[in-house]
Each structure stands twice: as C-alpha cells, then as structure tokens.
C-alpha cells in the first residue's frame, strides 16, 4: 500500500514537471499577439489625441493648434501606456 502510494506520488510529480516544461515555452503566435497589443496601444493613443484635438479646435475655433498639440501628447500617452503594458508583461513572464 505504502509502496503504491509512493509510486503514485512520483508519477504525479513527474507529470507535473513535464507539464511545467511544456507550459514554459511560449508559442511564437502568442508573442506576435503581445507585440500587436503594444502597437495598437500606441496607435490608439495618437488617434484619441488627434480626435480630442480636432474636437476641441472645433469647439474653440483654434484650428489647428490644439490638434497638433494633442496629437503629440497622444503619441506620448500611447507610448507611455504601451511601456506600462510591456512592464506588466515582463513581470508576468518573470513570475512564470
């Protein structure tokens, strides 16, 4: 009985080790997905900045000053949030 249990325990730990090995290798497709995520964030930043700038310009009649300023700020915001996401991803990868 005790021997059987030991055998089962070693079998389970073997299976677990194999599982973690298989899970540790990320497929290339999911890495491309991560890269797309970062790219979309930068583009979304520029798009939102541009839209808000265009809208505020229409509001205040200052075309195209605010559009240009907010387009630039949108780029910064996009890069910042994508850097934040990248840091988050790295923390997650390190944890695994």
């Amino acid at each position: 009985m005790a021997k059987d249990l030991h055998e089962l325990a070693s079998k389970i730990s073997d299976a677990k080790a194999q599982n973690s090995q298989a899970g540790g290798k990320k497929p290339a497709a999911s890495m491309v997905g991560l890269a797309y995520r970062l790219m979309i964030e930068v583009i979304a930043g520029i798009a939102v900045g541009g839209f808000v700038g265009w809208w505020l310009d229409k509001w205040f009649g200052t075309s195209p000053v605010l559009l240009l300023v907010l387009l630039f700020l949108g780029l910064i915001a996009g890069v910042m949030s994508s850097v934040r996401t990248a840091a988050e991803m790295r923390r997650k990868l390190d944890k695994e």
Partner: peptide, 13 residues
Amino acid sequence: VIELISYLTRPVS
C-alpha cells in the same frame, strides 16, 4: 493631460 488621454485610449485599444 497625458494620463487623461491614456485613460481615454482604453475603449479604443
């Protein structure tokens, strides 16, 4: 302003 824009990009992305 940058944080506000970055918050507004969430639904878009």
